Amino acid sequence: VSEWTEYKTADGKTYYYNNRTWESTWEKPQ
């Protein structure tokens, strides 16, 4: 699942961004 990158927002929430599909999600990808 290497295309997903984990980021943190300014208020400390974690989200995930897909470099291949430009998708972002709050849930941890499978």
Rank of each mutant, 00 (worst) to 15 (best):
W26R: 03
K8F: 09
D11I: 03
N18A: 01
W26G: 06
Q30N: 13
N19K: 10
K28H: 10
T9H: 04
T14H: 06
Y15F: 13
K13R: 15
E6P: 04
A10R: 09
N19Q: 11
E23L: 04
W22I: 04
K13V: 10
Q30R: 07
W22F: 15
T9Q: 04
T9S: 09
E27R: 04
R20E: 12
G12H: 01
Y17K: 06
W22V: 05
Y17W: 14
K13I: 10
D11N: 08
T14N: 03
S2A: 12
T14Q: 04
R20V: 14
V1F: 15
T21Y: 05
T9V: 01
Y15L: 09
T21A: 03
P29E: 04
R20I: 15
T25E: 05
T25S: 13
E23D: 06
Q30W: 13
K28E: 08
N19M: 09
E3L: 07
E27Y: 08
Y7V: 11
V1E: 14
K13E: 08
E3D: 14
Q30F: 11
T21I: 03
K8P: 00
Y17I: 15
Q30I: 14
A10S: 10
K8Y: 08
T9W: 02
S24E: 10
W22A: 15
W4Y: 04
T9E: 01
W26S: 10
Y17P: 00
R20T: 14
T21Q: 02
S24H: 13
T25K: 11
K28V: 12
S2R: 08
E6K: 06
K28A: 12
D11Q: 09
Y17D: 00
N18P: 02
T25D: 05
P29M: 05
T25W: 11
A10K: 10
A10H: 12
G12N: 06
T5Q: 10
Y17M: 10
K13L: 11
E23V: 07
E27M: 05
T25P: 05
W26N: 09
N19T: 13
T25M: 12
K13G: 06
K13M: 09
D11P: 01
E3A: 07
R20A: 12
Y16M: 01
A10G: 07
Y15M: 13
N18Q: 02
T9R: 03
W22N: 15
T5E: 10
Y15I: 09
W22G: 15
V1W: 14
S2E: 14
T25V: 14
W22T: 14
S2L: 10
N19I: 12
W22E: 15
Y15K: 06
D11F: 05
P29R: 03
Y16P: 00
P29G: 03
D11G: 08
E27V: 13
S24M: 15
T9Y: 05
E27F: 08
K28R: 09
T21E: 03
A10D: 10
